[in-house]
Amino acid sequence: MARKKLSDAQKQFIAGDDMNTQASQQVLAEANTQVSTEISDRIGADLKQELFSDRKTKESSIRFTVDIPESLNKRLAQLSVDTGKPKTELVRTILDRALTSLDY
């Protein structure tokens, strides 16, 4: 039984066309960046409002230890100074918002 020859389109599909793949990846990356920026802007505005508001809900808690880079700690410390809230409260709020945005 003789094999059929592949068309150029079939060869491209099997081998992968670098130019189309790169262009597709770039378009996807740009779309993801745009969507990510829109979501970040929306979440950022809501989060900023929540961080600067006075929310007083109390729930039992557990201790959770995490190591963070010094630069992140400095940013968190500055936010704490700006909002007048302890870093622990800010981290709780930020984690809650992040998990909520992921539907967890």
Rank of each mutant, 00 (worst) to 15 (best):
T33I: 10
Q25H: 05
K58G: 09
A9L: 11
Q10W: 14
A15L: 13
V91E: 00
Q10I: 06
S101W: 00
S60H: 07
I39E: 11
Q10A: 15
S80Q: 03
I14W: 06
I62W: 04
N20Q: 15
A23Y: 09
G16I: 04
D46N: 15
I39S: 04
S24A: 14
N20G: 14
P69L: 07
E59Y: 14
L28S: 13
L79T: 07
D18Q: 13
A29R: 03
S53I: 02
Q78I: 01
K5A: 10
Q25Y: 11
I68F: 00
K87A: 02
K87V: 05
V91G: 05
A9P: 03
L99D: 06
V81R: 15
R75G: 11
Q10C: 00
D67E: 09
G16W: 01
R55N: 08
Y104V: 04
T93S: 10
I62Q: 10
N20R: 15
I94H: 01
L95F: 06
D17H: 11
I39Y: 14
L51M: 06
E59K: 11
K56Q: 08
F64D: 05
I94A: 01
T88A: 04
E59V: 07
R92T: 01
E89W: 02
F64C: 12
L79F: 00
L102Q: 09
Q34L: 06
L79P: 07
R55W: 03
F52D: 03
L51C: 00
E70V: 04
E38C: 08
R97F: 02
I62C: 05
M19V: 15
E30D: 07
S101V: 03
I43L: 05
F13Y: 12
D18K: 09
L6P: 09
M19F: 14
N32M: 10
V66I: 05
I43N: 05
E50W: 10
K87M: 08
K85M: 06
Q34I: 02
K87D: 03
T21G: 00
G44I: 05
S7G: 07
G16L: 00
A23R: 14
Y104C: 04
A45Y: 06
D103W: 05
A77E: 01
A31P: 02
T100E: 14
A98E: 03
E38R: 15
N32D: 14
S7Y: 11
A15I: 12
R3G: 08
R63W: 14
P86I: 00
S7A: 01
D82V: 02
Q25L: 15
T33N: 02
E70L: 08
S40L: 11
F13C: 02
D54I: 13
T21W: 08
T57W: 12
T65P: 07
A98V: 01
Q22D: 09
T93W: 02
L95I: 11
M19K: 15
